[in-house]
Computed example of a mutant assay.
Amino acid sequence: MDKYEKVYPIAKGSLGPITKIRRKKDKEILVCKEIDVGMLTNEQIGSLVEELEFLANTRHPHLIECLDVWSDLKAKKVFIVMEYCEKGNLHELINDYKIENTRIPEEFIWKVLKQVLLGMQVCKSYEQNSSKTHALTPKKILFDGLKQVKLAYLCLEKDLEQALDLPLNIFAYLSPEILTNSQNSEKAKVWSLGCILYEMVTLDRLFNDDTLEKIAEKICKGNFEGTFEEHYSDELCKVIKLMLNVNPELRPSISEILSHSKLSICAKNTISSGNNDYPAIEVGFVESTPIETYEDIVQDISELSLDVPRRSSEFLRDSFLFMDYSMNQKPVLYLR
Rank of each mutant, 00 (worst) to 15 (best):
E230P: 06
S272L: 09
L304R: 00
D36E: 12
P138F: 07
Y325Q: 13
M82T: 07
P290S: 04
L197T: 06
S71V: 14
D307E: 12
A163G: 05
D210I: 15
L236G: 04
G194K: 02
E107H: 14
H62W: 09
L151E: 00
A135V: 07
G119A: 01
N245P: 01
K124M: 08
F320G: 15
L166Q: 04
R23K: 12
E92C: 06
S326P: 01
D324F: 06
M1C: 04
N276M: 10
F315H: 09
L306T: 15
F79D: 00
S130L: 05
L52S: 02
P17F: 12
I178F: 00
S182I: 10
T19W: 13
A135I: 08
D300K: 07
A75K: 11
D210K: 13
Y325D: 12
R59S: 14
D36Q: 08
Q162P: 03
L142E: 04
V37M: 09
I196N: 04
E100N: 10
L73H: 14
R311W: 01
N42M: 10
S264F: 05
F322S: 06
I219V: 09
L73T: 08
A135H: 01
E83F: 00
P309N: 01
I297Y: 05
P176Q: 02
K214L: 09
K132F: 07
Q121F: 03
Y198Q: 05
N328S: 14
G88D: 04
T102F: 09
C155R: 11
R23N: 03
C195L: 00
L93P: 02
I21A: 11
D2I: 14
N89K: 03
T58N: 03
A56S: 08
K25T: 13
L242D: 13
V69C: 13
A280R: 15
G194W: 01
S233T: 06
V37G: 07
V332Y: 08
D204M: 15
T289D: 14
T41N: 08
S131V: 15
K3W: 10
L212H: 12
F322R: 11
P248S: 02
I271K: 07
N269C: 09
L113K: 02
E303N: 15
L316Y: 00
F207Q: 00
C66W: 03
T41F: 06
S255C: 11
E157M: 11
G274E: 04
D324A: 05
S302C: 14
I196Y: 04
Y334P: 09
M323W: 15
T180N: 06
E292F: 07
K87G: 08
K132N: 10
I240S: 05
E53C: 15
L63F: 07
